[in-house]
Design a protein around this nucleic acid. Structure first.
Lengths: 219, 219
DNA sequence: TGTGTAAGTAACTACATGGTGCATTAGGCG
DNA sequence: CGCCTAATGCACCATGTAGTTACTTACACA
């Protein structure tokens, strides 16, 4: 075998042994299983099976079930914050920027339903896994400062009301979108509607944008 | 023994065997355990122990772990709806009635933190336990109609905006209160605040009332 | 081409779990 | 008072669980 073919096999050819690929398969499978059944309900055997990996690998790379959960969760938080970063809030008029933010949050939850149940699991165990994550702290701070800057700009341009706290606003934006999805099953029983029909989704996002605009904007 | 003493023992004396009391102790213990650890995380042995009852009793009265969870959850839903019924929304000015409703929801979650985690568990398993509960359907319908009546009255009295849907409003009121509590642990990490300090609670309920009033009221 | 190391596998363990069979006992009722 | 039913208790089971031990195999580099 010529040496260049050997070299290629490192990066291009489908390798039989590929640590990174295996790790990723495990993480993807874990995300599915944890979000579907919760932290306690998730089965490591099921994760290993779905990842087409051996259970031993899972413990080799992530130490424990909780270690695996921690990694999954941190990746998910990083992912949403990264996507948020790409939002062009600074170059839009304040009101449009605000609406963009609300709509992004909404659509992110639709595209990533796992995120919500993972966060729920983490709160059930009182955030033990992320409590001491400096990375998470840093990206979160950045995000809040960005929203505060948007609020300040809106006030300067005389379109936003004064004295709104960025953290409170963030919590409210998250809540009206998050709650709708996480409680859609009990909601379907109580309100006797299909929460996921296109019409229902349309109605809700419209309502949510209205809610936030009336809260933040003048008039 | 005189017969009246025997009679008394049925209702007054501490009975060694008292089905209703045992049931109640099991239900209280189950509520604690299920809300603390989730449906999958809860241990029937722990429930029996805490209830000072035998595990056999638990299965005798509630058939299975899921049967017990169903009973606990239905009782909790009935409880919040019953308390809501006592709210004097009909005799207050519309705006005050709305504020009363928001404040009640907030305080109910503070007084009954278990409710939130129980509902989260139920949504994780896609509401299998309450899906076919006619009681729950009935009380929920009543509640929504009552809010719709309040909205209508507010419009007639020219203090509320037209065209607001009672279901959407209910979801929003629940969400801005519920989310704050259910996500207070991850929230503490992300926003670097104590979500449960008296000042934080005060700030949040004020913000939430403002949010709802600006959404519903004219001006 | 040979070799050390890291990737991968299968079988296993120790234990905890939800759930039961069966014997026992309290107490309301005739 | 004595009987019959419902409440209770104990010991047990089958199964599933997270985590591990001991081994094999691919492959990057010399």
């Amino acid at each position: 075998m010529p040496p260049e073919k050997k070299r290629m096999s490192i990066s291009v050819k489908t390798r039989v042994r590929d640590a990174e690929a295996t790790k990723l398969r495990i993480l993807e499978a874990a995300k599915k299983e944890f979000s579907k059944n919760g932290l306690e309900g998730a089965r490591v055997d099921a994760i290993a099976l779905d990842a087409k990996a051996n259970k031993r690998m899972l413990y080799h790379y992530f130490k424990s079930k909780d270690g695996l959960f921690r990694t999954v969760l941190e990746r998910e938080y990083l992912n949403i914050r990264t996507e948020e970063t790409k939002l062009d809030l600074e170059n839009l008029p304040p009101r449009a920027a605000l609406e963009t933010l609300v709509r992004f949050t909404w659509e992110y939850y639709i595209r990533n339903p796992e995120f919500i149940t993972l966060v729920n699991s983490e709160n059930l165990c009182q955030a033990v896994h992320i409590k001491n994550s400096p990375t998470l702290r840093t990206v979160s701070q950045k995000f809040i400062r960005r929203i505060q800057a948007l609020l300040d700009r809106g006030v300067r341009e005389n379109v936003f009301r004064e004295g709104i706290d960025a953290a409170q606003l963030n919590i409210t934006i998250a809540s009206i979108n998050y709650y709708y999805f996480t409680n859609r099953f009990t909601g379907a029983v109580i309100f006797e509607r299909d929460f996921t029909s296109p019409e229902a989704l349309q109605e809700r996002i419209t309502f949510n944008i209205e809610t936030i605009c009336r809260l933040v904007c003048k008039n």
